[in-house]
């Protein structure tokens, strides 16, 4: 058996999902949570040409096994930190300064979107259970 034929029986190495730039160290300093990272990498692995990605919150929640509420809050963090750029119309874009679908496109994308640095974001507040109206029980007990 020739070497080529033997090699063809081997499993292939995994394909690169996305590529990181040296500046990703700035993202490490942001102190993102585990869910934020998981959602960022989930979206980054699904980037298309031009770093564009479609966001389906239910699909993300099912894929990384977190609640839809966590996905909603983490997406707001990623937008606040400028890692995820969501225009009013069309697909969202992952900041090409830090993560790129194809390293050859990076300089072109950075020129198109601008050199957008990440900033420390604020995590959205948890939703609280609606409290009963004050005085409601007092009204009942007064009878």
């Amino acid at each position: 058996m020739s070497v080529t034929a033997w090699e063809s029986t081997l499993p292939a190495l995994p394909r690169p999902a996305f590529e990181m730039h040296d500046r990703f160290e700035e993202v490490i300093e942001l102190g993102l949570s585990g869910a934020d990272y998981a959602i960022l990498f989930h979206l980054a692995a699904r980037m298309q040409t031009g770093n564009r990605v479609a966001i389906n919150q239910r699909a993300i929640a099912a894929a990384i096994r977190v609640s839809p509420e966590t996905v909603r809050r983490s997406l707001s963090v990623l937008r606040a930190t400028r890692l995820l750029l969501s225009p009013d119309e069309g697909l969202s874009v992952i900041n090409p300064v830090y993560l790129v679908h194809n390293i050859a496109e990076r300089s072109q994308l950075v020129k198109a979107f601008g050199n957008i640095d990440v900033v420390r974001g604020v995590r959205a507040a948890r939703r609280t259970r609606p409290m009963p109206r004050r005085g409601h029980l007092a009204l009942v007990s007064s009878r």
């Binding site: 499993p11 690169p16 999902a17 692995a45």
Partner: peptide
């Protein structure tokens, strides 16, 4: 593993198998 045809250049990459880490809840 068999070689995969990577583009030339030096880079840091996450492979598609790294997605298996995502649901682990790190």
């Amino acid at each position: 593993r068999r070689r995969y045809a990577y583009p030339s250049g030096s880079y840091r990459t996450f492979s598609d198998e790294a997605e298996q880490l995502l649901p682990y809840g790190l």
